[in-house]
Amino acid sequence: MKLPYYPGCTLKKNAKNFEISAMAAAKHLGIELIELPRWNCCGAVSSLTSDDVMHHVAAIRNLVRVQQMNDDGILENEYRLIVLCSMCFNVLKRSNMLVTSNASMLNTINSFMDTEPDYEGTVEVKHFLEILRDEIGFERLKNAVRNPLKGLKISPYYGCTLLRPKEIGIDDAESPSIMENLIEALGGDVADNPYKSLCCGSYHTVGNAEVVAQRTYKIIEGARRNGADVIITSCPLCAFNLDNRQALTEKLYPGFKRMPILYFTQLMALAFGYEKEAGFDGNFINPIPLLEEKGLIGMKVQK
């Protein structure tokens, strides 16, 4: 299965291990993620005003690329655009929703884009997790596991943009289960966290890192109380806040103990037997000692 894929800026810089691990995991499941040609930054956050059309142009331009890939024969009638980064997913899906329900807005954007082909409203923005749940299915995914994550207590962290607002979210906004199901399929143990969809502070990490570090503390302790060894996420900004900001958390909360933060795809890659592609050397808090202790890495896995 060939699917068009939108990486977004951060997956090319801080979150390279997110992309590489996802590619490996997808390939193992028979999915080829084809990067959009000439993609551009989506804008990271949506404009929430009713009078702002301009700020949706960047997102829509990326959707035009999916149309072009179909026109150019790179894809065959495949209009589902796969996104890994939760924030980009939220922005692209919101803009898509707005223009497909508002013809005059779509018109304005199309005429603004001038020589760019018109966007026809045909693209469906999907998060990679949705493909795992709805296309592959957790049963099939379970069968693809070669290195079950036995004994690893994994706590899902959804954050905001994967779940809210409801019309964009990929799961129940109040009691999501998609990551839990994934963890179980990979052979790991789920450690619940009452703060699994509490905002981490997002872009306040620029200029107000303390606010973020406080949330980081609350979220990590919430997971730890439920026995978590590690937290997984699908948002590179959440990952930065939960992972890198632990340095500050440590200063603010004496006695705080670090906990590794991973992208869900890193654990998929590990469970599928692609230890190198999992990119554990790219995380701020080094997860390798933990994974070794659990006997999950450093062992020969048959490919």
Binding site: G8, K13, A15, C41, G43, A44, V45, S202, G207
Partner: peptide, 11 residues
């Protein structure tokens, strides 16, 4: 800082 943090903060 990740680009996503900068872009969103500036926006």
């Amino acid at each position: 800082l990740p680009p996503i943090a900068l872009v969103s903060a500036l926006r």
